[in-house]
Amino acid sequence: MSNPDSLKLSAENFDAIDQIVNKYNSDKGAAIMILQQVQATYGYIGQSMLERISQLTGTPTSELFSIVTFYSQFRLEPLGENFIQVCHGTACHLAGAERISEAVQHVTKAKPGHTSPDGKFTLEHVACLGCCSHGPIMTLNNETFARMTPDKVKKMLHQKVADKGFVNSEGCELSE
């Protein structure tokens, strides 16, 4: 995924949007699929992107905006360098998901649904990742970690900040 900070939405960068729309626009009801692909490419959906999609598809920007604000998957601001999801499903809630979220917020200063001021972390709460037997569950850059504790979160994220790219899974392996 390209770094959103350095992303200038020049005409050149709209190329990907043009390709996505070309690929999906012939399908009936493709709006959500197009938006999903755009987000997968850019990490988020900015206003200028909505306008470009609107130009190409003829769907009013207001309608596209109504879709991206309805579904929780869509992000309207750029993704941080690291993407954290904390599962808040029922099993994870009972296992202490709230404390995991708090620990992430303490370390990263990112609020749920937002990116930290330094742009390093984006924190998202998700309804359920379906790994209910191993809660609390957290994902870091799409790798899933089981049975988290606030302590493990701290170690893991501090290491992430220090090492830039390497996470020691020691601290987050399954342990009873």
């Binding site: 808040h88 499903g89 029922t90 099993a91 994870c92 809630h93 309804a127 359920c128 379906g130 790994c131 209910c132």
Partner: peptide, 12 residues
């Protein structure tokens, strides 16, 4: 669209 938090039958 197995949205119930705490359910993972369909995923499995």
């Amino acid at each position: 669209d197995e949205g119930d938090p705490g359910a993972f039958m369909d995923r499995s």
